[in-house]
Computed example of a mutant assay.
Amino acid sequence: MAWLALVISGLFETVWAAALSASRGLSKPLATVVFVVALVISMAGLGYALRTIPVGTGYAVWVGIGAIGTAVYGMLAMGDPVSASRITCLVLIVAGVAGLKFLH
């Protein structure tokens, strides 16, 4: 259950990062509310997961999911550049996160 909470929390990290960008410096009320709610859910899930998952592993997985999710969202929805080198770096993050999970 802790790993599921960690993955969901990582996905909510992507949501709050995207909402933070959309809030334009917290000046747009709806995006700001989405940011705050997603941030709270993300942190609560991370806190729950860290009850049983070691902090170094849990935090790295959480950040990795959030970073990959945010980068992919940026490329698909926000027009961020897509290149072979960027994709390779994201694959390396996935490999590192998977390694932390399976070598735990």
Rank of each mutant, 00 (worst) to 15 (best):
G96H: 02
A19W: 09
S85I: 15
A98V: 13
V33W: 11
L103P: 00
I65R: 12
R86G: 01
A71E: 06
I87D: 10
M78V: 03
S27N: 10
W62P: 02
G58N: 04
I8T: 08
S85K: 15
G99Q: 00
G79N: 02
A71I: 05
G74E: 05
A49M: 05
A18I: 12
V97R: 03
P54R: 14
G96K: 04
K28F: 14
R86D: 08
L76F: 14
A5D: 08
V15A: 11
L6G: 02
S9Y: 10
A31V: 05
L76T: 14
S83L: 03
A17I: 13
A38D: 03
V61C: 02
L50R: 11
L100R: 06
V94H: 00
E13G: 11
A77Y: 15
L46A: 04
Y48N: 07
L46S: 02
L46I: 06
S85C: 10
V34I: 10
W62L: 03
L46C: 03
I41R: 05
T52E: 15
G25V: 12
F12M: 13
L103G: 00
L20S: 12
C89G: 13
V72I: 14
S21P: 00
A5R: 13
I65P: 09
G58V: 04
G56W: 11
L26N: 01
L76I: 14
L30V: 05
L11Y: 04
A77I: 14
T70M: 08
V72F: 12
I87A: 14
A38P: 06
M43Y: 13
V61K: 05
I41C: 07
L4W: 14
T70Q: 10
L50Q: 09
H104R: 06
L90Q: 13
G96N: 01
M43E: 07
V34N: 01
L30R: 01
L39C: 10
M78E: 15
I41D: 06
A18C: 01
A67N: 10
A18Q: 06
V33C: 02
A71F: 04
G45L: 05
G45W: 05
A44F: 13
L30E: 00
M75L: 07
V63M: 12
C89E: 08
F102H: 10
F35E: 04
L92P: 00
L30P: 00
I68W: 07
V55W: 14
G69I: 08
V72H: 11
W16P: 00
L90I: 12
F35W: 13
A67I: 13
L92N: 01
A60M: 11
K101N: 02
L26Y: 13
V34A: 01
G45A: 04
I65T: 13
C89N: 12
A98I: 09
L39A: 13
L103Q: 01
G10P: 06
T32M: 11
L6D: 02
S85T: 15
A22G: 00
A22E: 02
V94I: 08
T88H: 11
G96Y: 02
V37Q: 09
W16Y: 15
A67P: 04
M1H: 07
L90H: 12
V63C: 10
L46P: 03
V36S: 05
V72T: 11
T14C: 13
A77N: 15
S83N: 05
R86W: 08
V63N: 12
A19Y: 07
S83V: 04
G99N: 01
V15G: 05
S21L: 00
L100I: 04
A60D: 06
R51H: 15
I93L: 12
G66D: 09
I8N: 04
R51L: 15
A5S: 14
Y48R: 08
